[in-house]
Computed example of a mutant assay.
Amino acid sequence: MNNPVTSSPSRWQSLADQVLSGYQISREEGLEILSSSDDELLDLLSATYRIRQKHFGKQVQLYYLKNAKSGLCPEDCGYCSQARGSKADIPKYRMLNEEKLLEGAKAADEAKAGTYCIVASGRGPTDKEVDHVASVVEKIKSSFDLRICCCLGLLNEDQAKRLQQAGVNRINHNLNTSREYYEKICTTHTYEDRLQTLKVAREAGMELCSGLIVGMGEVAEDIVDATFELRELETKSIPVNFLNSIDGTSLEAVDELDPRYCLKALCLFRMAHPATEIRIAGGREVNLRSMQAMGLYAANSMFVSDYLTTKGQAAEADYEMIADLGFEVIISGHEMDATTGEPSELATQAESC
């Protein structure tokens, strides 16, 4: 009688077992994930999903962006359509008034987003702009059950404290890339400037949201270095952007990503940050294309509707994608029916992002 054939766990399943037991992956293992064969992708995703499922089940958190101030920026970030020197055809306007920002909060609520992100171009806000945003945030908090994340550029201690006192839950300030590669994408401020803003935000009592942009000409080592820097910072939320090359920017000709590499990057972040919210951010539709849904086997969050100066897919398409996976949108601590966008009859309490 023949003995049954058994197979030993793959290297990715074995690595997931270790992570689930509290192990922190090494830089070498991070590089192995990014350089892994496409033939291993399904197994890598399967292993990664086990980690995602332990910490987040089938929950998906949605974010909604509002570009509160567009263009007119003195910084030269090469990826950005709003940067100094950009010839991209985009709207340009100063800080939106209270009415427009409240309209954005209403749109976020209607889009079933748990978090409303107020984003402004520029090196950093003036004190007057901070007071304006803080005043609007206080009104939003009194009218909507939304968490607020602000991305306003470089902040000082007093500005961070004002935002926290107004009810801002989280500050977004992306590292964007590694320390070593940073000067290749921006020369008007430094990597250390970004770390300082994250420092003052944390000291003021706000959570940190910080991530990167994959596909700007960096090498795998840069992505891994950024991954581990974010681990040291103990960020609560990590947006993983994929470069959407915009005509008129200095990176307009850069187009080096394919969906499979994007998925490997998401797996890297989940393996390195097992219990941290990982968000599929800008460039999702352009770079993941028909494989968008697979990204949620690693990530547990994504933006809904549009980005800063580029369009996203319709919110209804996002709800349908989530429902097709058998996943559930989480908003304000309640499970939502991903098809209808209405509260589930079996709603359970869960921490809103």
Rank of each mutant, 00 (worst) to 15 (best):
L155S: 01
G153T: 01
G167W: 04
D145Q: 07
N172Y: 03
A120P: 00
N174R: 11
K141L: 08
N174M: 07
K141E: 09
N174C: 12
E157D: 09
L152K: 05
R162F: 03
V168W: 06
Q164K: 09
A120K: 04
I140Q: 01
G122T: 02
S143T: 09
Q159S: 08
D127I: 01
R170A: 12
G124Q: 07
K139Q: 11
V137C: 10
K161P: 04
I140H: 00
D127Y: 01
E157K: 15
K141Q: 12
S135K: 15
D127F: 02
F144A: 00
L163F: 10
S121Q: 04
L154Y: 04
T177A: 14
A134F: 00
T177Q: 12
S142W: 02
V133A: 08
C150V: 15
C149N: 03
E129V: 06
E129W: 07
V130A: 06
S142C: 09
R170V: 11
D145T: 05
S142G: 13
N174W: 11
E157I: 05
E157P: 02
S121E: 03
V136T: 08
A134G: 01
K128D: 13
P125N: 13
G167Y: 05
S178P: 12
D127Q: 03
N174D: 11
R147I: 02
D131K: 13
R147C: 06
A134W: 00
I148D: 00
L154H: 06
G167C: 06
Q165W: 03
P125H: 13
C150K: 08
S135Q: 15
E157V: 09
Q159Y: 08
I148L: 03
Q159M: 10
N172H: 11
S135F: 15
I140R: 00
A166G: 03
S121F: 00
S142K: 15
L155W: 05
S143R: 15
Q164R: 07
S178F: 13
K128G: 09
A134K: 02
R162A: 10
D131P: 02
G167I: 05
F144S: 00
R170C: 14
C150Y: 06
L175E: 03
E129T: 05
E129S: 07
C150P: 00
N156E: 12
L175Y: 02
E138V: 11
A160K: 10
Q159C: 10
I148C: 02
S135W: 13
C149I: 05
D158S: 15
D131T: 11
R170D: 11
L146G: 00
R123I: 08
Q159D: 08
I148P: 00
E157W: 05
L163R: 14
V133M: 10
S143A: 15
V136M: 06
V137K: 12
G153A: 06
A160M: 08
K161L: 15
G167S: 08
D158F: 07
T177C: 14
L175A: 05
A160L: 07
S121P: 04
E129C: 07
L163G: 11
A134R: 02
D145H: 06
D131I: 08
V133P: 01
L152F: 12
N156M: 11
E129A: 09
V133K: 08
A160E: 07
D131E: 13
V168L: 13
C150H: 04
A120T: 12
G122K: 03
K141F: 09
E138N: 09
L154M: 09
D158W: 08
V136I: 10
Q165G: 03
A120D: 06
G122D: 05
S143Y: 04
H173S: 13
D127A: 02
